[in-house]
């Protein structure tokens, strides 16, 4: 199969390729399907993109659907419609204007999803804003800034506090009481281990709350445990 190599500034109409390599700034005006897409610089795809592996070093804008096995982003990527992905590692920012589905997502930086977000494995070091439902299998979240989603559901959800470098934390805390947390109306799951969050309703089988958790209502089935400094308005044991 053909390879597509673009250096400098250029454009292509799309099609089926083996390898696509962009060094510089390129616009692809139609749908493109390839085994591997590597972009160093900036790429804009007006159609849908289907690939085995995608690597963006720089800025990628995909106006259609993106469907791939592997995605690696160092920089920023925007998806116009929806994203279906097996494994994704993002160092930087990922913005999706529709729904996003991952098998496993490893993100350092920011994630924005305008629709629903689904992932079996969800590892976040940074922040996310999700407008729809966040549906996750196992989640490991360390918020560096506020992580927002109206509804979070899953099996095992763990939210840990970010330990800032020693000196910085002291001064930061001294100046303001602000702390990054997970903000949501509802969190449901089997095993919930939440250190820092602001949640209206938490429902789960086993719930463990840490120091900076503020919850309006906790409904648990088997086990409930909270840190003495956590703030819980109401706790109910639900019996089946």
């Amino acid at each position: 199969m053909n390879n597509l190599v673009l250096m400098g500034h250029g454009s292509a109409s799309g099609g089926v390729y083996d390898r696509v390599r962009i060094n510089g700034d390129a616009t692809i005006t139609g749908d493109i399907e390839c085994v591997e897409l590597i972009c160093n610089g900036r790429v804009k795809v007006a159609g849908n993109l289907k690939a085995k592996s995608i690597r963006i070093n720089g800025d990628g804008t995909f106006e259609g659907q993106v469907n791939a096995d592997r995605l690696k982003v160092y920089g920023q990527t925007t998806v116009g419609v929806s994203l279906v992905m097996k494994t994704a590692s993002i160092y930087g920012e990922l913005k999706i204007k529709g729904n996003a589905t991952f098998d496993s997502l490893n993100l350092k930086g920011g994630l924005q999803v305008a629709g629903d977000c689904e992932a079996e494995d969800f590892k976040i070091r940074g922040a996310f804003t999700i407008k729809g439902l966040l549906n996750i299998g196992t989640a490991d979240i360390v918020p560096y800034a506020d992580c927002k989603a109206p509804e979070i559901g899953g099996e095992k959800i763990m939210v840990r506090k970010f330990n800032r470098p020693f000196g910085l934390t002291k001064w930061f805390k001294f100046l303001s009481s602000y702390e990054a947390e997970v903000v949501t109306d509802m969190m449901e799951g089997d095993d919930l281990d939440i250190e820092t969050a602001n949640i209206k309703v938490v429902r789960g089988n086993r719930v463990k709350l840490g120091q900076s958790a503020a919850i309006d209502r906790v409904e648990y089935r088997d086990h409930f445990e909270k840190h003495e400094q956590s703030f819980v308005k109401e706790e109910v044991k639900v019996t089946a």
Binding site: N135, E188, E219
Partner: peptide, 20 residues
């Protein structure tokens, strides 16, 4: 949803997994 889980004896995790 709450009544469904109690009635069928499944957990939140299962329900979300099936939805996924």
């Amino acid at each position: 949803k709450k009544d469904l889980l109690i009635k069928t004896g499944i957990s939140y995790g299962q329900l979300y997994r099936w939805k996924r």
